[in-house]
Computed example of a mutant assay.
Amino acid sequence: MLIQSVFAAAREVFSPALRRILWKSIGLTLALLVLVWLGLTKLFDIFLTNHDLSASYPIIDSFAFFLAGFGLFVALIYLLPAISAIVAGYFLDDVAEIVERKDYPADPPGQALPFGTSLLYGMRFAGLSLLVNLVALLLFFIPGINIGAFFIANAYLLGREYFELAAGRFRPAEDVARLRTEHRGTVLAAGAVVAALVLVPVVNLITPIFGAVLMVHLHKRLTHGRALWTQVRRTDSASIENT
């Protein structure tokens, strides 16, 4: 079920139907990364100016700028899951409508989340992701723990967020939470796939669209299985009663 969903997402993310949304998603992700980069650079420049390291310790000043460049790059990696969630929340309904219409034409279409609700979900997850990844960032210099902490935390967070966005088109929040809990292992594994994608430079720019397509397929496959089982049980019960 999960493997089929992963392959379906990998096949469709670059399809003509989604290509326009993919490019817009990449553009928005890059724009947000640039804004964050400029903000962090400005903060670091203010810090150096206030402490006036260049006047007393020019070597330390140069070394600090080197570390700042590397440190800002690392910080952007840890901030990417939060940025990805914001972008996914913005484009998910457009992606879901295309996937549902193309691959599940016999099913009733999902209902788009109100823009405010979708944005609120993205901002909520972004805040939680920032908090969790800040803790993971503090573990950056501990070998063997840094990447593991980053991967596990984001596998859970990304799996939860993307699944809730996809399932929220068809059911209320409490039902979404219940369904996610029933299939927590599958959702976590799907989140691990998305988290692994985040670790790949350049390719991680497609994370919002890939994650959205993956979770639309996963939600459909999970609920289709439940519906089919319910239909089989009802058929069997009816056969017994007729007998």
Rank of each mutant, 00 (worst) to 15 (best):
I59N: 13
T181E: 15
D94Q: 13
A10L: 12
P105D: 02
D93C: 12
F73N: 15
E174P: 11
L76F: 03
E100I: 04
P108W: 03
A68C: 05
A190F: 10
F7P: 13
L139T: 14
D93I: 11
W23N: 08
P108K: 08
A192M: 13
R178E: 15
S62I: 08
K102S: 04
L214A: 05
W37A: 06
I142C: 00
G116C: 06
A149T: 14
N133F: 06
L157F: 08
G122E: 10
F65H: 14
F140S: 10
L199S: 15
A167E: 01
H217R: 01
E241I: 01
T223K: 00
F70H: 05
N154I: 03
F115K: 15
V95A: 02
R171I: 02
A153D: 04
L80Q: 12
R226N: 05
D94N: 06
V213C: 04
R169W: 03
V135Q: 12
L228E: 13
Q4M: 05
L53Y: 10
G168R: 09
G39C: 03
G127K: 14
E161L: 09
W229A: 05
T49P: 00
F14L: 14
P16M: 04
A64N: 02
A177M: 15
A166D: 09
G127F: 09
L28C: 01
I26L: 09
S56Q: 12
V132C: 09
V203H: 01
G39Y: 00
L197Q: 15
L120T: 09
L18I: 13
P58W: 07
G168A: 08
F141V: 09
E241S: 02
P105G: 01
I77P: 05
L165W: 08
V187C: 00
R180S: 11
T49R: 03
V193G: 13
L134Y: 09
T29S: 08
D103K: 04
A177W: 12
A106R: 02
M123T: 09
P208R: 04
L157M: 12
P201E: 13
D94R: 05
L2E: 03
T117E: 12
G191A: 08
S237R: 12
L139W: 06
T243F: 00
K220L: 00
L113N: 10
S237H: 06
L137S: 10
L197R: 15
G225L: 00
I98T: 14
L130R: 04
I98M: 09
T186R: 14
L188V: 14
A85M: 06
G168W: 04
N133T: 07
G185Y: 11
V203M: 12
A196S: 15
I3T: 12
A167D: 13
V176S: 15
I26F: 02
V198L: 15
Q231W: 01
L188H: 14
Q4G: 15
